[in-house]
Design a protein around this nucleic acid. Structure first.
Length: 572
RNA sequence: GCACCCAUAGCUCAGCUGGAUAGAGCGCUGCCCUCCGAAGGCAGAGGCCGCAGGUUCGAAUCCUGCUGGGUGCACCA
């Protein structure tokens, strides 16, 4: 049940009736007709902008359309009052029994809020994709949480979602990893490691070195790099991926698919992808203009193989081959997205760190070119996380040893808190992560505030159960606080669709906060008005009263589920 | 020099893709526990929505130009 969608249908059929009666011209575009909660609850339960949106195309005054529409709307049994307000808004107040029916619908279907807007369309959400060269740090954490929540949200909204991790195991940095691991291998064999400048110094490679010794004994020690590099690289990247997978799991993130960059080289997919672009006339030999302003020291005009990304919205064409003929980093990225297109995804979503903002246009251009504009490609940039402890910003520095890993954060504050807090900000806004505040158990902390609401409901339900109360029918909701809460519940399916459409999971977190707030308000009102308490002396009255808090728990639970946060049953 | 992102209450941030008198939390002021969990709630004060134009019935929201901050800018993945 989606009350807003239902009432919107009512508005549309009423408009059709007006067309039939000759009050409106036929063929009006109604896509922009919206039914939403009015800004001020005093205006009613729902408002529509239909008259204002249609005024111009219909060649009529908003007021005239509204006056006629109001009559039709008011005739519906669900609508108690419909009236014109302001410049042409139509405010509606719904009949009281609508809210009881809504609560009932929430409790009946465990799918309340799910949507069919996705229509089963295949979406690929690629996130994390951290280089397999070390443990995940906090920067990756936010991207992981965001991508995971977005994937869940889209799933909830009816899309067929694939969660994917792109393993950068094809480039120079995994060679560096291999050399670093080899030094640890030497160390395991009793030699002192020579961690030259540029190698990874982290001691997370120590166990990898030991495992290498386990496998190879001392047989590699005197061998030249050509002999061992490939094997050690494979061994080390697999060890790193095991570690990353474990890190992700501790956060509650599980991927459907891991895609190896290396596999692109092995299968000739890069050539295939570039060939595809060549067939479209988008590959050519040419020389790029030097960048304006600051000129790199060693800049010189150079003829390169270029992708005509400007034909698909990029600012300049991009090189895909180095002067020695090897592929640039961009080529495998193109091939990877070619592969996504070929796998039949209708929509591709990439989650990048904000420092990769410069690649957005070229990636979109590549997808557009490879799919002839048929596959939508959205790229979400994740801003930095500023860690704060004891009121001080923690500067991350590998050298100073103040490198904070995902594991550190999860172990200190827990996965639930980490996830929720990281979703209380838009992806493109920087986030302050204050260790002291997120641990605080007060309404300062949105996680606990929402959890607390859920725990309160569970507390009531436990007490009700002990008293022998069972859910029967749903009491009429009459008090303002009750109706405000029911109205917020009715808004849930709508919020899901808005959030899914905009790829904005943070909306779910904000919605839950508001829902919890409305619930706490009603709860507290029970202090002054005993008749508002969910547990009454009369068993039958209690049975009907507990429907509303149960419905609240259903929605909080579903919402937290999307965010990947466990709803708490008690918080003592 | 160019591109992208950001600018809203003292602070941290929302703002439903163009709608009504711009919201919440913190902080500040004053209230509410013989009462289902006060880890809560209610009320008040606090705003040229960075600046200047434009689009139209209507702009925090869309367009242009500025100002200030972040990020990135040819073979590095």
């Amino acid at each position: 049940m989606n009350l807003f969608a239902d009432i919107r249908s009512l508005v549309l059929t009423s408009l059709e009736a007006m067309v039939a009666e000759g009050l409106l011209p036929a063929g009006l575009e109604t896509a922009n007709v919206a039914v939403e909660p009015p800004r001020d609850a005093l205006h009613g339960d729902m408002a529509t902008n239909a008259a204002m949106v249609l005024a111009k195309p219909a060649g009529k005054k908003p007021r005239d359309i509204a006056d006629a529409l109001v009559v039709k709307l008011a005739a519906d049994p669900r609508v108690a009052v419909a009236e014109v307000a302001g410049p042409g808004f139509i405010n509606m107040r719904l009949e009281g029994d609508v809210w009881g029916a809504l609560v009932q619908a929430v409790l009946k279907a465990d799918s309340f809020g799910t949507s069919t807007m996705g229509g089963g369309k295949k979406v690929n959400v690629e996130y994390v994709s951290a280089n397999p060269t070390g443990p995940m740090h906090v920067g990756h954490t936010r991207g992981a949480v965001f991508g995971d929540a977005l994937a869940s949200l889209l799933d909830f909204a009816g899309y067929d979602v694939t969660r994917e991790y792109y393993i950068n195991d094809g480039g120079a940095q995994v060679d560096v990893l291999a050399r670093s691991a080899f030094e640890r291998y030497r160390e395991a064999n009793g030699l002192s490691p020579e961690l030259a400048e540029g190698l990874y110094p982290g001691d997370y490679l120590v166990p990898v070195g030991e495992a290498l010794k386990e496998k190879y004994g001392d047989s590699l020690l005197d061998q030249p790099e050509e002999v061992w590099l490939q094997d050690v690289r494979l061994f080390a990247t697999e060890a790193m991926m095991d570690m990353i997978r474990a890190d992700l799991k501790s956060l509650g993130v599980e991927m459907d698919s891991f895609f190896s960059e290396k596999s692109l080289y092995d299968t000739g997919l890069i050539e295939a992808a570039i060939g595809e672009l060549k067939d479209k006339g988008l590959i050519y030999r040419g020389t790029l203009e030097p960048p304006k302003g600051k000129l790199p020291e060693d800049w010189e005009p150079r003829e390169q193989t270029l992708f005509r990304s400007t034909a698909h919205g990029d600012d300049v064409d991009r090189p895909i081959q180095k002067s020695d003929g090897a592929w640039t980093y961009f080529a495998p990225d193109i091939a990877y997205h070619y592969n996504k297109v070929k796998r039949g995804f209708d929509e591709i979503i990439d989650i990048f760190g904000a420092d990769h903002g410069g690649y957005v246009k070229r990636m979109k251009a590549a997808v557009s070119a490879l799919s002839d504009g048929k596959v939508a490609c959205d790229i979400k940039l994740i801003q930095l996380v500023k860690l704060i402890k004891d009121g001080q910003e923690m500067k991350m520095s590998k050298r100073a040893g103040t490198f904070v890993t995902l594991r550190d954060v999860v172990e200190e504050v827990g996965a639930d808190v980490t996830r929720f807090v990281m979703l209380t900000r838009k992806n493109d806004a920087p986030l302050d992560f204050d260790f002291d505040k997120v641990m605080e158990q007060s309404k300062d902390n949105p996680v606990f505030y929402v959890q607390y609401a859920h725990a309160r409901v569970q507390s009531v339900l436990r007490k009700a159960h002990d008293a022998g109360v069972t859910l029967t029918d749903v009491a009429n909701l009459t008090d303002d606080a009750e109706i405000t809460l029911a109205r917020k519940l009715a808004d849930w399916p709508r919020q899901v669709e808005i959030a899914a459409k905009g790829h904005e999971p943070h909306r779910i977190a904000f919605y839950l906060y508001e829902l919890a707030s409305d619930f706490h308000a009603l709860w507290n009102k029970g202090n002054d008005k005993p008749q508002l308490r969910f547990l009454q002396d009369d068993l039958a009255a209690s049975s009907a009263k507990i429907a509303l808090p149960r419905a609240v728990a259903v929605v909080i639970s579903a919402g937290l589920g999307i965010l990947g946060v466990t709803p708490a049953n008690e918080m003592r």
